[in-house]
Every structure is written in C-alpha cells, then in structure tokens.
C-alpha cells in the first residue's frame, strides 16, 4: 500500500520544491521505491531541481488525459535507483487536473508498488494545491520562520482538515509534519526571527525537521541536484534527519548552532 505525502505551504518561495526533491531522494536512498510528482501545472520546476528537465517527454496531464501510459511518463532519477519523477505540464490548462484523473494516477502508481508518492504542491490555495493534498496520508508543511509564511501555513492546515479525502470521508486525519526551512539561529538569538518554539506554539503540529539557511542550496539548484546530495553540509544532514524522523526514528536536533558567531566575528567576516 503506497503512502501519499504532500509537500505544501500555502506561501510561495519557502522551499516546497527543494524539500520535495530532497525528501523523495532521501526516501529512495533509504530503499523505498518513491515517485515525486509536480502538481504545479503551467509553472513546472521540479524537473529542473531534480536535473531531469531534458528527459521529460510526457507529463502528469498527458497521463490523466490518456495521451500516454503512466510508465512512459515516469522519468527515472539519475542518482537514485528507486526514484522516479512525474513532471507537471508546462503548457496545459490547470483545469485538466481533475480529481478523478489524479485518483486514477495514484491508484496506478500503487499498482506499480511505489512505497511513497510525494506530491509537490503549487503555492496558493487554488485547485492545484487542493488536488496535490486531496489524497494525502501525510502532509509536510514547509514554513519559513516568518510571519506571512506561518499565517499561510495555518490556513493550509485548516484545509488539510477540511477538504481532503480523509476529512470528507471522516477517516483518520492527514498526519501533519512541520518542517521549518531557512532557519537562521543567529537571527533567532538576536530576537529578529521567530524561533522553532514560537512556530510550533502557533501552529501546534509535530516538528519533523529544521533546515538551516544555507548558500549551498542555490548552488545545488543551479546544478539540478537535490540539496540532500550536498554531502557534508548541514542542509543535507538536516534533510536526512527529517526523513529519518518521518520514518519513525528518533534523531536529535542538530545543525541549530549560531553560525554567525559574535558581532566581532561577523564584522571580520564582512571584510
């Protein structure tokens, strides 16, 4: 039985696609057959972050409309044996993303023995975002420690509890996991940024991980490589720990040290 995981946030630019790419890669690296699907119809980007953009021939909408079969549209990841990418359509109308169509794709992926189906949600609260979360068993809510991101996340949590299949059928609710990204321990220490506890207090869902702010993420996306493959970096370690926690393992919170040092060190660093 496959587990469907939606990566969502409400707000744009907080790291949903970065997280989807790394999360799916991490699950595959741990031996789980995984597919990651881009639900951002018209603004596809997951393929770029995964570095497979030139190998995409068919996309999710082709599959839904029967223009190809599912196997033809699954792009095998070049780094992980167990990982496949299903791209979003760049040209079609987003109304093509129908509930029945998405359900059929989920059903067919389960039949192909995928352990995890990771859905990269578009920003916003419109049909694309609702479709990405509709069949979810788990939701990873990506939040920056920043006021507008937290508010939007709260809105999304409300929708997960109301509009999803699980909510409508009054089954056990979607399991929610808080992932804080772009966390800057230095600014938190200075009282300039909401702390982990602040965000948790407000949203009141289980914390699955904290990803520190890091310049290497941009470099990784420039090269089409999921950030989890940045070996030896805090970002890679933090994503790895988050996935382990998601899979039920206990992991201490690492990588939360104040990276910037004191004022003097910062001053020196800026020279």
């Amino acid at each position: 039985m496959s587990k469907i995981v939606v990566i969502t946030s409400g707000k744009g630019g907080v790291g949903k696609t970065t997280t989807s790419a790394s999360f799916a890669s991490g699950l595959a690296m741990r031996g789980h057959k995984t597919v990651v699907i881009d639900f951002d119809i018209g603004l596809r980007n997951l393929d770029l972050i995964m570095g497979c953009e030139r190998r995409v021939v068919y996309d999710l909408i082709h599959v839904i409309q029967g223009a190809c079969n599912l196997n033809q549209a699954l792009v095998k990841d070049k780094r992980c044996e167990n990982l496949f990418v299903l791209a979003a359509s760049q040209t079609r109308d987003k109304n093509a993303l129908t509930s029945a169509g998405v359900q059929q794709v989920m059903f067919d992926l389960a039949a192909l023995d995928f352990a995890y189906i990771v859905c990269d949600s578009p920003a916003g609260i419109e049909s694309g975002a609702l479709m990405a979360m509709h069949f979810a068993d788990h939701a990873v809510i990506v939040v920056n420690p920043e006021i507008s991101s937290v508010r939007d996340a709260d809105r999304i949590i409300g929708m997960l509890n109301k509009t999803t299949q699980r909510a409508l059928e009054k089954r056990e609710p979607v399991q929610e996991h808080l992932l804080i990204t772009r966390y800057d321990a230095g600014r938190v220490a200075d009282g300039q940024m909401l702390s982990i506890e602040d965000v948790q207090d407000i949203l009141d869902i289980d914390l699955v991980g904290v990803i520190p702010e890091c310049d290497d993420v941009l470099a990784a996306s420039n090269e089409g490589m999921p950030a989890i493959h940045l070996e030896g970096t805090d970002v890679s370690g933090a994503y790895g720990d988050a996935i382990d926690r998601f899979l039920g393992m206990k992991r201490p919170m690492r990588y939360l040290k104040n990276q910037r040092g004191g004022y003097f060190k910062r001053l020196l660093g800026s020279l």
């Binding site: 920043e146 006021i147 937290v150 508010r151 709260d154 809105r155 409300g158 109301k162 938190v188 200075d190 009282g191 300039q192 940024m193 909401l194 702390s195 602040d198 207090d201 407000i202």
Partner: peptide, 23 residues
C-alpha cells in the same frame, strides 16, 4: 529590532485566533 520576533509572534497569535474562528 531587538525583539521584533516577539512582536511577530504576538501579532500572529491574534490574527490566527480570529481566522481560525472564521473558518
């Protein structure tokens, strides 16, 4: 700027209390 995070948290708690009632 010394404790703008505290201000953010307070503002969020107030607005979300209202929005959660609404929905």
């Amino acid at each position: 700027r010394e404790n703008s995070a505290g201000v953010a948290k307070e503002r969020l708690q107030i607005i979300l209390a209202l929005e959660r009632v609404d929905s």
